[in-house]
């Protein structure tokens, strides 16, 4: 077996194990699905009536893409927390003494978390439809939007995997990732039009990949209404720009995480 097929085959075994855990601890899944509902409802009703986005698009339509992006990024902390938890358990010694691919624990974890994110996207979609959000494009384009969301969240979960291995404490992963996720998801066009931000923040927002994901998803759902086309390259070409970022994140954090995994012993 080649290294890649080995990593995928062993990763699938580990992913299956993670999924069995979901079955055994359904409360985790319930909380995973509760928070996206909360986000959709909170933003729709708290901000929905007071923020005018312009361009003849309702704020509720505008913000749903932002909520989706923020939620899947928060969802990726699940990867870090899950790995940090694993690292404190004896099972990781078992894994490390087995002739499995060194990357399998990480491949399996990030892989099973795609399902987690899929579930939360599904739930958010339902919640969004209930509060009045609509997809105004073809189903194919919408599916493209969902896939891009998953792809980006997959890349982010590798960052969180690295964090989880590095700190090896579930609490620290959660606190540390909040410090990182709040700024990157708020200094973006997730909840406001980036044009309304002051100078440096606006530049950050324009080149923030979170913005490009939100922009791409928004376009995929046809929620941009009469908003003017952004003239920054990153937002004018949100799909290629997002994919470039996905490539960069994976190229850095896959090898980094695998190396960290090899180095770390259970504590």
């Amino acid at each position: 077996m080649s290294q890649l097929t080995l990593a995928l085959a062993d990763g699938a075994v580990v992913a299956k194990r993670n999924l069995i855990k979901i079955k055994r601890l359904p409360e985790v899944l319930i909380w995973t699905t509760m928070s996206p509902i909360m986000f959709v409802v909170l933003f729709a009703y708290v901000f929905g009536n007071s923020i005018q986005i312009g361009g003849g698009v309702s704020y509720r339509e505008f913000l749903i893409a932002g909520v989706f992006v923020q939620t899947v990024i928060f969802g990726s902390t699940f990867t870090g927390a899950g790995l940090a938890d694993d690292m404190t358990k004896g099972i990781i010694d078992r894994f490390r003494s087995l002739p499995m691919a060194r990357s399998a624990v990480l491949v399996g974890r990030t892989g099973s978390d795609i399902l987690y994110n899929s579930i939360s996207i599904f739930v958010m979609t339902l919640a969004g439809l209930i509060v009045g959000w609509r997809i105004r494009t073809s189903p194919l384009e919408a599916i493209g939007g969902f896939l891009l969301l998953l792809l980006f969240s997959y890349a982010v979960s590798w960052i969180m995997a690295y964090v989880g291995l590095k700190v090896s404490s579930v609490e620290v992963v959660q606190n540390a990732s909040f410090m990182f996720i709040f700024p990157i998801t708020f200094i973006a066009n997730t909840f406001v039009n980036q044009d309304s931000l002051p100078g440096p923040l606006r530049v950050f927002a324009e080149w923030n990949p979170v913005s490009s994901v939100a922009q791409a998803v928004r376009e995929a759902f046809g929620n941009t209404g009469g908003l003017p086309e952004p003239d920054v390259w990153s937002l004018a070409n949100p799909i290629p720009y997002t994919i470039i970022w996905v490539g960069i994140i994976l190229a850095i954090f896959v090898p980094l995480s695998v190396r960290q995994y090899k180095k770390t012993t259970s504590r």
Binding site: K21, R24, R94
Partner: peptide
């Protein structure tokens, strides 16, 4: 090789 450690290295949810 087979290893059986001090802390039972099994997954408690499985």
């Amino acid at each position: 090789i087979g290893l059986s450690g001090q802390n039972a290295a099994v997954d408690e949810h499985l």
